[in-house]
Design a protein around this nucleic acid. Structure first.
Length: 750
DNA sequence: GACCTGCTGCGGCGTG
């Protein structure tokens, strides 16, 4: 009877389109109605074709895709003969969550749901492979392994697919891993002789739905249906808080003396003590996420806050969470957040941005402006998930105290202004769109090897067709593809060889690479030490670190003394200690979008007020605006400073870097700050004539520029490429030469 | 001025 009443409230909705077992399951869940995104997505998914579904975190996207897909599987009435739904997810942890979530509804429909990733027992996989049916939840790497190891079974496993679901679509867009996934999905379609297998992309954070559609179906984005759920959240409460750095800093000799005293170590890592006090005050006693920006700052910050708990004789509530911590260390924090009633704040890097199930938190805090609006949006989505509670986000920004900031870059308070710019973008609903411009030749090398393994040998023309014409490597023309093949077949590399009949086969080095399980991921990873305390692995530490026996270390939120370093086994053994030095992790900066930097200029130019910034931040913004005018930036973006000249192009990282390289190619001594280029020991007129030249098309030789570019971020197989191909990659992916003349023009005319 | 992700097949050995 209760079922009947609920059916009435769901009347004339997408609910009616679902298969009876799915409807029964919905009644059992006691849902009062379908969510907006589900109402819209169900008919679209039932109709077939590609669909992108975008909606807030926790708005029921998974069900929006899966319920109609189960309906389609039931209607198709196929017992076995292959998997019906392929669900690809970027994290094993997400697959485990989704598997738990989907088991009941699939059981109600009498449809099997398998999880398939590196931690799943080989036996369970063998069982699924013997009788493939239902839904399979898988990572791109495990899917790659299936194709590479059992290429001949591909058609048997996947010919009956109704659809492919790509979870967290944004996590794949524009990345090496995303290229690999697009290529794998295409290889499956080709191998199964299917023109198109429906693709359904799910995401909470899409800057531009049309570009996301193109990422889901390269070359066919215009035919993808876009579903944008508009479930209203519970509102947002947002604040930016400003803090002064180095206000009462001791002079340098004293600083040296107290450097080892880690109790006051926050200041050196951008956390002045008033900020630490406020973090403690806002976060203690409830459940929160604190995004600290880097692994080092996560450790410093959790150490600081743990110390404050100890000082007040409270049990600790602050736990670090980042990618160098072991799985067990991280899981302890996740479980405590999800299932433990005690107040807990996880101090994290981006590890807790994606939808790992940690329940709802009260608030989200962030130190510094961060690198992207997309990331800010993901973070915000982690709070305010409980009915009636708004999402709370506090951004903590430290800037040098007024009396210490004499350099223009310090006087403009660029971190604070960037934080405001990002929040303004967030409020406007904008976030960074994917920019498909990379050649991804490293991943192309990987896919050529994988395709040869899958097919047992393939002709160059056929490989080109699969990977570059039909597949995602569309910026690679025939000539470049042939060059890549020549690189791979050369006497030095021997990744592949060509049989007399023209078939491409795996070469000697290629065999070595592909026989290892390390072959499946396309991203590069570093070699590391494991840090161990009494047989418990705490995490991993970079190999090139300068640690020595007897030194101390903050790691996993505790303090340690190093007992032993075994360079052969790559193990660091530790015991608890009272002191610890902050850990060091190497890294290189992120790319900031043009729009954010141009918004920063608008903020400095206007006198708009922002209700969400605190009093200290308001005063800082005021002083930044005064500095902007005092420096003459309202009249010109090229200003004298000391014995040199400063350029303020107000563009994103890629264009700024390209301009800096152009300056270096013309023998200027340059220093690059956040969003500014300083040219040392030169006069204004020489800079102006240089810019005039560029504005009129006199751009330095691209090879001279590319040669000056440091290459810290090589992709996994880049070292197999010739210098010529590497230049092509660099020019396309890291520089923006086309933008130079326009950029120079705007600098000289302003 | 940064972060994150992933992994097969098989041989050998111990235990019930």
């Amino acid at each position: 009877m209760t079922a009947k009443i609920r059916m009435t409230s769901l009347q004339r909705s997408a609910f009616d389109l679902l298969a009876p077992p799915v409807q029964r399951w919905i009644w059992q869940q006691k849902w009062q109605s379908l969510r907006d995104v589900q109402e819209k997505a169900i008919p679209a998914v039932l109709a077939g074709g590609d669909v992108v579904i975008s909606a807030k975190t926790a708005a029921g996207k998974t069900e929006a895709a899966i319920l109609p897909l189960l309906t389609r599987v039931i209607a198709s009435n196929r017992e076995s003969g292959g998997f019906a739904v392929l669900y690809v997810s970027p994290l094993k942890a997400l697959i485990n969550d989704q598997h738990r979530r989907l088991e009941a509804v699939c059981e109600a429909c009498d449809i099997l749901v398998h999880k398939w990733h590196g931690d799943v027992a080989a036996e369970a996989k063998a069982r699924a492979r013997r009788r493939p049916s239902g839904v399979i939840l898988v990572t791109p790497e495990s899917l790659e392994a299936m194709l590479v190891r059992r290429g001949s079974e591909t058609a048997y496993l996947f010919s009956a697919l109704q659809a492919v679901v790509v979870d967290e679509l944004h996590a794949f867009i524009g990345t090496e891993r995303g290229m690999q996934l697009q290529s794998i999905l295409n290889r499956i379609e080709v191998e199964c002789g299917r023109e198109r297998i429906d693709r359904i992309g799910l995401s909470a954070t899409l800057g531009d739905m049309h570009l996301a559609a193109e990422a889901l179906r390269p070359g066919g984005g215009e035919k993808v249906r876009l579903i944008d759920g508009n479930d209203q959240g519970n509102g947002i409460r947002l604040q930016i808080r400003g803090y002064s750095l180095g206000a009462q800093r001791p002079d340098d000799t004293q600083t040296e003396a107290v450097r080892d005293d880690v109790n006051r170590g926050g200041e050196d890592f951008g956390i002045p003590s008033p900020m630490a006090d406020d973090l403690f005050r806002f976060l203690r006693g409830s459940r929160n996420l604190l995004f600290a920006g880097s692994r080092q700052r996560v450790e410093v910050c959790s150490d600081l806050l743990r110390g404050m708990c100890e000082e007040q004789r409270l049990s600790n509530e602050f736990y670090p969470h980042h990618g160098s911590l072991s799985k067990s260390e991280r899981e302890e924090v996740e479980v405590r957040l999800r299932d433990d009633p005690r107040p807990t704040t996880a101090v994290a890097t981006t590890t807790l941005e994606l939808g790992i199930d940690i329940g709802s938190v009260e608030s989200v805090a962030q130190i510094g402006p961060g690198f992207s609006v997309a990331s800010l949006r993901q973070r915000l989505g982690r709070s305010g998930r409980r009915e009636g509670n708004p999402a709370i986000l506090r951004v903590f920004v430290a800037e040098l105290a007024a009396d210490r900031g004499t350099h223009p870059v310090d006087r403009l308070k660029l971190d604070l202004v960037q934080a405001i710019a990002m929040v303004e973008c967030l409020r406007m609903g904008w976030c960074e769109p994917p920019i498909p411009r990379g050649l991804h030749l490293s991943t192309l090398i990987h896919q050529i090897l994988a395709l040869i393994m899958q097919t047992g040998g393939i002709r160059p023309a056929a490989a080109y067709k699969v990977l570059c014409e039909r597949g995602p490597f569309r910026l690679v023309d025939r000539g470049m593809f042939a060059e890549v093949l020549r690189c791979m077949a050369s006497a030095e590399t021997t990744l592949i060889e060509q049989a007399p009949d023209g078939l491409l086969l795996i070469g000697k080095t290629g065999e070595f690479l592909t026989e290892s399980h390390e072959f499946y991921p396309v991203f590069a990873t570093e070699r590391e030490y494991r840090i161990i305390h009494e047989s418990r692995v705490l995490g991993t530490y970079p190999l090139d670190s300068l640690l020595a026996k007897g030194e101390t270390l903050i790691f996993a939120g505790r303090r340690w003394k190093i007992l032993e370093i075994d360079d052969v086994a790559r193990v660091i053994t530790v015991r608890p200690a009272t002191y610890g030095k902050p850990p060091y992790f190497p890294g290189s900066g992120g790319l900031i979008h043009d729009r954010i930097i141009s918004m920063m200029r608008d903020i400095l130019t206007t006198s708009d007020e922002y209700a969400y910034i605190d009093r200290a931040a308001t005063a800082m913004l005021q002083s930044a605006r005064e500095a902007y005018h005092a420096l003459g930036l309202d009249r010109s973006s090229v200003v004298r400073f000391g014995s040199g000249v400063m350029l303020f192009p107000w563009v994103g990282t890629r264009k700024l870097g390209t301009l800096a390289l152009a300056c270096q190619a013309r023998e200027f001594e340059t220093a690059q700050y956040s969003h500014v280029i300083e040219l040392q020991d030169c006069d204004l007129s020489s800079v102006e004539s240089f810019l005039d030249g560029i504005a009129n098309g006199d751009v330095p030789d691209e090879r001279v520029m590319a040669a000056r570019l440091a290459q810290p971020n090589l992709a996994r197989f880049d070292h197999f490429l010739t210098p010529e191909l590497m230049w092509s990659v660099t020019l396309r992916e890291r520089l923006d030469l086309d933008a130079l003349p326009e950029l120079a023009k705007s600098l000289v005319s302003s």
